[in-house]
Computed example of a mutant assay.
Amino acid sequence: MSLVGGGGAPWRRLATAIYLPTAVSFIGFGAIVPLVPLTARALGASIAEAALVVALMGVGSLIGALPAGVIADRFGEKKSLVGALFVDVACLLTCVFAPNTWVLAGAVFVTGLSGSMLSLARQSYLTVAVGLEYRARALSTLGGVFRIGSLVGPLMGAAVVSVWGLQAAYLVASGTSLLAAIVTLALPDLPVPEHEPGQPVRLAQVLRRHARTYATAGTGAAALMLVRTSRDALLPLWCEQIGLDAAATSLIFALSSGIDMTLFYVGGSVMDRFGRRWVSVPAMVIMGLCFALLPLAHSLLAVAVFAALLGLGNGISAGVVMTIGSDASPAVGRPQFLAGWRLTSGIGQAAGPLLVTAIAAVAPLAAAALAVGAIGLTGAGWLWRWVPEPSVQGR
């Protein structure tokens, strides 16, 4: 049973209760991410310790993936969202008053845990609340909101810090999370799935039952995430290698991110009308070819063209990993399944920059670009083979 099928009013209600708090909280989150290492340094951390503090957010997100599924199943998506946002408020206020690096590190780690809960609960909620015919557009819009927050957040953070100082950004972010929690209370409740009497849904049982899905479609999703995140590591390093300065590199990134941010709804519409493969596969081919050909780019214009194409591939595929996971999720045990799905794709997300770093340490940077390109092109074929196409009929 979905809350959104063909009517406009329910869709607008969900837009207010899901997308608005997501945008508000993610803008606040985007504001503080670049400031975490600076805060650690201000508290006396070394460069290595500051880098570790930043990494703890990603570690917390990975570790929190499976527990998030259990919590969402136990308390429901709406309560889990509100609870995680209040945890965010507490963590951000802790960052403001952190007396040393390790208190800051603990707060950042817990922020990663709560972020995992927020991502899973939003995906699970939309999977149930929105009819299958609109699912890809709903989840692609969610992915687009994340991208908007990543762009607007740092700009807001820079403005706040320039006027009131570093701690003020955390105060503003805690305020956005609190506002998001209040708005989320307007979410309509979802129907409760009926478990078989005496048969509680266990995480391990769900993971075992769907191990084949994780190994097939999940591997393709992880490859897509790996290729996506490699952009953030490879592009600036390549710009530096061919002699472009920081200003030119920033402009190239702005171009790529601008294109990326404007195409999420287009990708969702294509997926809903023609199928998931018609976005996931072309996106992988585009990004794979861009990375494979990047070693041929030796001018500002050439790199800008590749950056724009990477933005195209990344933009049209916004929400595709969530959509494929939602399509494969069972009615009973959905939060636990999505937890395993997020862990699988999250490993791919973390692996991208690590792969670039590892190859660049022992070989020319061009070798890293070629390796990522090969993964992209191979992953395109893998996704075409293993991504299922759901049928609206009978759902």
Rank of each mutant, 00 (worst) to 15 (best):
L309A: 07
S317T: 08
D327H: 05
F291E: 11
V305L: 12
Q349L: 08
M322W: 15
L301H: 13
R342P: 00
L338T: 03
P353N: 03
I316C: 01
L293P: 09
A361E: 02
G348W: 09
G313R: 11
A318N: 15
H298N: 12
P330E: 02
V303F: 02
S345I: 14
G311T: 07
P330A: 01
S345P: 08
F337L: 05
V356I: 04
G315L: 04
G352T: 01
V320Q: 10
L338W: 04
A339N: 10
R342W: 14
L300V: 05
N314Q: 15
A328T: 00
A297M: 06
M322F: 15
I316V: 08
T357K: 06
A304D: 03
G311C: 08
P295M: 02
L296P: 03
A308V: 06
V305I: 15
G325Q: 11
L343D: 11
N314R: 10
Q349G: 14
G319Q: 13
V305D: 08
P295L: 01
T344E: 07
G346I: 07
A292L: 15
G352E: 00
A292P: 15
G325V: 05
Q336N: 06
A308R: 10
G348H: 10
A308E: 08
T357F: 08
G311F: 04
A292E: 05
L301Q: 14
F337Q: 07
G315C: 05
S345K: 10
D327N: 07
